[in-house]
Amino acid sequence: MNDRLEIRNVSKRFTRKSGIVERGAEYIGLKAPNPVVRALDDVSLTVAQGEVVGIVGESGCGKSTLGRVVAGLLKASEGAVLFRGKRLEDMSARDAEAARLQVQMIFQDPSSSLNPRQRVHEIIGAAPLHHGLTTARELDDYVSRQMERSGLDPSMARRFPHQFSGGQRQRIGIARALAVQPDMLICDESVAALDVSIQAQILNLFLDLREQLDLTYIFISHDLSVVEHISDRVVVMYLGRVVEEAPVAELFSHPNHPYTRALLLERPSLDPVQRSFSAIEGEIPSPLSPPSGCHFHPRCPLAMERCRVERPELRSVGTRHKSACHLND
């Protein structure tokens, strides 16, 4: 059987387009070409049906770009995104639209991802109506069902987003995504902006929905404990590359890559014993000019000469456990 999703050697580059004068200057060598950010650098990943894959990393690691490429909001510069073994480009127009509709995204900030001038009824109901999943006559019922499923009171359908609290707004975002009956959700920092007690409510909602609707998730977060809780498998990214991936229990008990180990070590814990914070040195390098070889080598306590020149391949280090580090050789 084909995987629900396969990302094959995907790269995504961002650059600023030159104007005509700049292009001329570049052509005759008066000006260097505009810098290129490699937000994703040869990333491969598979997600099985019904699986929850967590993607962790710090700012600039490309985790959001990856989510957007999968959701179809960005086009990959290289490589292929396969849905059940097929590329969107190889499908008929109708199949491609259906495949895209199957993947929905939930964003970090519910207040900026909801139109402030639309009522909740319209926010949730517009897409299913357009795609013919319901009729104008049955729309009210349809919207009510979506709201109930996300833990919202259907009697509030005629209100505007600003009349809801942050947690409720996130529920509106979830109801909107589920209204087109997707089987895969991409959650990009979806609980990061919420208070702890509300965060637990939303995480529980994600867990319940997974059970009820057999959803597949890509769960993007910088928060290791959230990812540990919800994921079956975890992918760690650093500066546009996957550095390690493993089933959740394996990754948290036997981290292989020095970066993963550092992340786990520096995770603040509730252990009330006074402890000393020890930090890995250095800044996250700019993705405009990432270090040569292994991107992590300037901050890695175990870096050797080889790490400076040669990019480590993502290789198997155990059952379903892959890591990109020269130390494994």
Binding site: E58, E266, F277, A279, I280
Partner: peptide
């Protein structure tokens, strides 16, 4: 801030 920077 990011996790590693927060620890610093």
């Amino acid at each position: 801030l990011d996790v590693t920077i927060q620890a610093q």
